[in-house]
């Protein structure tokens, strides 16, 4: 009945007391509350999300190292996540390697450094493009699939059913996927690295007129172990993040088909962003001292 008047009286009172006590009497201070409040709320919601994801990750790791282990499910997920991602990863890295050779050739020819093409291709592939491209492709393919599957299980009460059948959903659903991501992504990236270098080689030899033997020699001449290893470490981190985000968003989805769709989107977006952020962090850990 008098909600509106009650509200305005309260506001007036607040202003009065604020002017009287808190604020020095230097005139009217207008605080644009409609901007700060939503931003603050979003920031708090973000912090809460980070907290929940961290707890989720901690629980996952905890269950990863304690029995029972579902090896059958781990192998099944390795097939789903690793093996079936091979074609996508192979295509992306092949063309990435090819375009890299073309671009660096046309760039380096400006200061007659064409001989560096092979080195540039292999170092960029192993350090950056292999893991990041494979990670992003797998995030789209696998992260979405995991979120959709676990999300559907959540909204159709299959996760509840698991609990009533004395099975821990973390061990049964989350851990196999995360372990599979952790293990198979480095394998995928290693294969992707090789295919990418092969793409560069094909373009270099057939299109740019490099000698076959010298291209291969240049490829390995300046390559260091750390280039490859840092890429594989990145891949493992990405594999963990992709599967974790897929599981997290699926596990916490609600609200029927729409909620599952939302969870899928969130899984892909958040894991893609996390891939790029963690890529920078791992690079800095490896290559700056």
């Amino acid at each position: 009945m008098d909600i509106a008047t009650g509200g305005s009286i309260q506001k007036a009172d607040l202003n009065k007391s604020a002017n009287a006590t808190d604020w020095p009497a230097t005139g009217e201070i207008i605080i644009p509350m409609p901007i700060f409040a939503p931003v603050g709320r979003m920031f708090l919601a973000f912090l809460a999300l980070v907290g929940r994801v961290t707890v989720f990750a901690g629980r996952t790791v905890g269950h990863m190292v304690t029995p029972p282990f579902y090896f059958r499910l781990i192998f099944k997920q390795m097939r789903e996540i690793g093996y079936f991602s091979l074609p996508v990863v192979a295509m992306t890295t092949l063309f990435a390697g090819m375009v890299l050779a073309l671009q660096s050739y046309s760039g380096f020819s400006r200061f007659s450094a064409e001989s560096a093409v092979a080195t540039v291709v292999v170092i960029s592939m192993t350090r950056e493009l292999g893991p990041v491209l494979a990670g992003l492709m797998v995030a789209g393919r696998v992260g979405a699939a995991i979120a959709a599957e676990i999300g559907t299980m959540r909204v159709t009460e299959q996760i509840d059913a698991l609990v009533t059948l004395s099975t821990n959903p973390f061990k049964y659903l989350v851990v196999p996927r995360v372990v599979a991501g952790l293990v198979t992504l480095p394998m995928l990236v290693l294969i992707g690295d090789i295919i990418g270098v092969l793409g560069g080689y094909l373009v270099g030899v057939n299109k740019l007129g490099f000698n076959e033997g010298s291209y291969i020699r240049n490829t390995f001449q300046y390559l260091e172990q750390l280039d490859v290893i840092s890429g594989l470490v990145k891949a493992a981190v990405f594999g963990f993040l992709i599967t974790l985000m897929g599981c997290y968003h699926g596990y916490h989805s609600r609200g029927g088909a729409q909620g599952v769709g939302q969870a899928t989107t969130n899984a892909v977006v958040s894991s893609s962003i996390l891939i790029l952020i963690s890529n920078y962090i791992v690079t800095e850990l490896f290559f700056t001292r």
């Binding site: 599957e149 299980m153 009460e157 299959q158 509840d160 059913a161 009533t164 059948l165 004395s166």
Partner: peptide
């Protein structure tokens, strides 16, 4: 829970498993 059984309103069968594995789930796992 080891001594209880529950039928959900929507059945909540695991669609990644065939029918018999659904029924046998509590026995196997």
């Amino acid at each position: 829970l080891a001594h209880t059984g529950m039928l959900f309103q929507g059945a909540a069968l695991f669609d990644s498993l065939p029918v018999w594995e659904n029924v046998a789930f509590g026995l196997i796992e």
